[in-house]
Design a protein around this nucleic acid. Sequence first.
DNA 1: TTGTTGCAAATCGTATACTATTTTGTCAAC
DNA 2: GTTGACAAAATAGTATACGATTTGCAACAA
Lengths: 211, 211
Amino acid sequence: MSYAAADPVYEDIRAMILAGELEPGSPLRQDEIAKRFGISKIPVREALRRLEVESLVTFERNKGASVRQYSETEALQLLDIRIALECRALELAIPNMIASDFNDMHAHLADYAKRTEVAEWSAMNTRFHHMLYEPCGNKPLLNMINDLQGRLGQFLRVLVSTASGLERPMREHEDILEASKAADVDAAVQLLRKHIETTKKEVAAFLRRGG
Amino acid sequence: MSYAAADPVYEDIRAMILAGELEPGSPLRQDEIAKRFGISKIPVREALRRLEVESLVTFERNKGASVRQYSETEALQLLDIRIALECRALELAIPNMIASDFNDMHAHLADYAKRTEVAEWSAMNTRFHHMLYEPCGNKPLLNMINDLQGRLGQFLRVLVSTASGLERPMREHEDILEASKAADVDAAVQLLRKHIETTKKEVAAFLRRGG
DNA sequence: TTGTTGCAAATCGTATACTATTTTGTCAAC
DNA sequence: GTTGACAAAATAGTATACGATTTGCAACAA
């Protein structure tokens, strides 16, 4: 015994929340999770506390943990943070991009364009953005972007399947990639900023209509 | 019993780390902390795990927790994130600033300039930055900036007492405040960016000399 | 019906207790 | 004096146990 009992719980629950398999608001019963993993409640609680700090879970005293439900304003605020972090990451990444990076991104976009399954779009979209930022080499920054993506997941998943379609984001992705290829940092950053701001507007509209 | 035993531990240890009272690398003994607070190890571990997610503490299996030591590259990377977050916060804050905000900031800078105790500078500096960003109204963003400030604390505390003095940052603070007052968002953001980039250069130089 | 009261069950939070691992100290061999 | 082996102590990690709080439900009164 004694092999980091909390880690698998943390990973699993986290993945389930990010994948949208657990509804926001649904309770996370400690005994049940403990039994499922064949361990006691102690490491389960540790895992849940960690998720709490990541804002994926909330605790209420004597009621335990539940999947965190974001308010509408919070979603929009998180998108403002996304603008800051992702624009900075792109700015730092462009000088480090090499030919194979561009090839990979082109290939990914080509693949992306062919997908007809709405369910796939969200993941493909996230992946493209990460490919853009990875060359920045700033691990903590990439982690923060990842975390944010996770927190926004519940909104973006719904959005991508209803509002935006594929054409507009696709065109914008290609523009950003071209500007990056031309090493035009300012242009690329401005395009990315507009891209995320459009997403923000779509989320706002979606919520206004009572998402 | 049963009243959030972990919370006071979390707050206290966190405050001690941020204040620099605990050396990076020093171990955090669970039994000792538990005894000090008159509780058992379980809530202590929860508190430490929370601090781990905030990157203030690291766990090594069967060796427990210790105050996290940042590498030099990580410090510089965190400063790149600071540029992103704080510039964005200022950008969002300026349109929301009112007369009393400007008065408060002016008063704070005047007070700041009179302080001769080096130990006070760091806190005064942090406070001024927060006053700049607060009007943005974006809670999650302000929290992230706070967290970053904490993580960078161990570097900036040393820095402020050795390298930078008071004049240069003071002049820059005033410039940023003037641009904000004039509602010149672009200028203010550029000044702030330069301001933090200078800090970054100073940290880099400090580390090169084997800080 | 509707609202209240009072259990009983479910669930949480944490102290205690036990095992596993690491660290420390001792002593003999070289 | 240094090194290695091994026992003892310290420390971490987790299961079990138990009191405290909340929740669900039934019985009853209005």
